[in-house]
């Protein structure tokens, strides 16, 4: 398994080769991070490609002040926000964006509806405010530390902890009541 230092060294010596290694290592985890935020597979595919192209453009500007994975997650998260913000421009409210994401969850070729509990869990997540949903995803699915999430989202660790706590409480309530 390639480690981050090796990828970083290769990126400096040979950007094309380094980028290939980077895509191989992070493609899957970044795709799932994006997919959980934008829900539709087709949208996730577009956002993923934009994310990697942006990474490629700015690869030589990456400074080792944060870890490579944190930097990549940050770019991916920004791309998710850019995508969701674009939706907000064409809709009236945040609720409409949530409703649109919910529709995509409930009518997709690439969602397995056989497992009702898994679908319901994603529905519960879609009732959360965007930021809470992001924090929950990064902590629960990606198992990132609060410090890393703080670097990705520019949010204080204490705020993140309370976001995560409230997100879990809301999900529990939804799962019990629905």
């Amino acid at each position: 398994m390639m480690n981050e230092d090796k990828i970083r060294e290769t990126c400096q010596a040979n950007p094309e080769k380094g980028f290939r290694m980077l895509v191989e290592k992070y493609q899957s985890s970044i795709y799932w991070h994006i997919r959980r935020m934008v829900i539709s597979h087709e949208d996730a595919e577009d956002v993923l490609q934009e994310t990697f192209i942006r990474i490629f453009r700015y690869l030589n500007e990456f400074r080792a002040e944060s870890s490579l994975s944190t930097w990549i997650y940050r770019i991916a998260t920004n791309e998710c926000y850019r995508f969701l913000d674009k939706k907000k421009e064409t809709t009236v409210s945040t609720e409409e964006v949530q409703a649109d994401l919910m529709n995509k969850l409930m009518a997709s070729e690439y969602v397995d509806y056989d497992n009702e509990m898994e679908v319901k869990f994603q529905q519960a997540l879609l009732t959360l405010p965007e930021k809470q949903r992001l924090v929950f995803n990064l902590r629960y699915y990606d198992e990132l530390s609060y410090e890393d999430i703080s670097r990705i989202t520019d949010t204080k660790v204490d705020t993140l902890k309370s976001n995560y706590y409230f997100a879990k409480e809301k999900i529990k309530k939804y799962m019990i009541n629905n």
Partner: peptide, 9 residues
């Protein structure tokens, strides 16, 4: 539920 999701590719 753990980390399982209904999403497929």
């Amino acid at each position: 539920i753990g980390k399982r999701t209904p999403f497929r590719t």
